[in-house]
Amino acid sequence: MTLDELKPGSSAIIAVVGGEGALRRRLLDMGLTPKTRVTVRKVAPMGDPIELFLRSYVLTIRKDDAANIELVEGSVEKAVKK
């Protein structure tokens, strides 16, 4: 599953951050690194972008960009194994 598919209110662990260049680097820099737990808080009124909660702060990214982030549900251990 990818981050854009995660339902508002639910959370999961990041497995892989895909994409390339400036965007991918920005996602990593902002703390969206593998093994990090991220919650989708809500979707903007027009259906995009989405609001995330991670590392005790709130971040917003576009759905297209969120599609580059693969998730595992459940615990950190599972993410490491993958």
């Binding site: 902002m30 972008p49 917003t60 960009d65």
Partner: peptide, 12 residues
């Protein structure tokens, strides 16, 4: 070219 990505903090 690529626009600067829209990855933005929503501060308190």
């Amino acid at each position: 070219g690529n626009p600067v990505p829209f990855v933005m903090e929503l501060p308190a």
